[in-house]
C-alpha cells in the first residue's frame, strides 16, 4: 500500500502543480469565471487530464485516510470493512466528479 501511496503521490506532484497553476495564474484575473471553466474543460485533452487527476487524488487521499485509521488500532476484520467502505466512497467521489465535469463540458458544446 505504501508503494501506491508514494507512486500516486509523485503523479500528483505533476497533476496538482498543473491544476494549481492553471486555476490561479494562467487565467487573467486569477480564478476562473464560469465561462473560463466551461471553455477549459471543453478541450478533450484537458478533460482527460482532469479526470485522471480526480482519480489519482481520490485514490491517494483515501489510501492516506486508511493509513491514519490503521493507527487507531484497527484489526484485520475492521480493516476489510474499512477498505470496502473507502472504495465505495472513492467510487462515489469519482462518479460525482466525472458527472460534474461531463455536465460542465456539455455546456460548452
Amino acid at each position: 500500500m505504501w508503494i501506491w501511496q508514494a507512486f500516486t503521490g509523485l503523479l500528483l506532484l505533476i497533476l496538482l502543480t498543473l491544476h494549481m497553476v492553471f486555476n490561479h495564474f494562467v487565467v487573467e484575473g486569477g480564478l476562473r469565471t464560469y465561462r473560463d471553466v466551461v471553455a477549459y474543460l471543453s478541450h478533450p485533452v484537458v478533460f482527460t487530464w482532469e479526470i485522471l487527476f480526480l482519480v489519482v487524488v481520490t485514490a491517494h487521499a483515501l489510501m492516506g485516510v486508511r493509513a491514519i485509521l490503521l493507527d487507531l488500532g484497527i484489526g484485520p476484520g475492521t480493516d476489510r470493512w474499512l477498505k470496502r467502505g473507502l472504495t465505495l466512497v472513492g467510487l462515489g467521489i469519482i462518479g460525482y466528479g466525472v458527472w460534474l465535469s461531463w455536465w460542465i463540458r456539455s455546456r460548452g458544446a
Partner: peptide, 8 residues
C-alpha cells in the same frame, strides 16, 4: 508535496 518526495 515536497516532504512527500523526501519520504519516498
Amino acid at each position: 508535496a515536497l516532504n512527500g518526495v523526501r519520504v519516498t
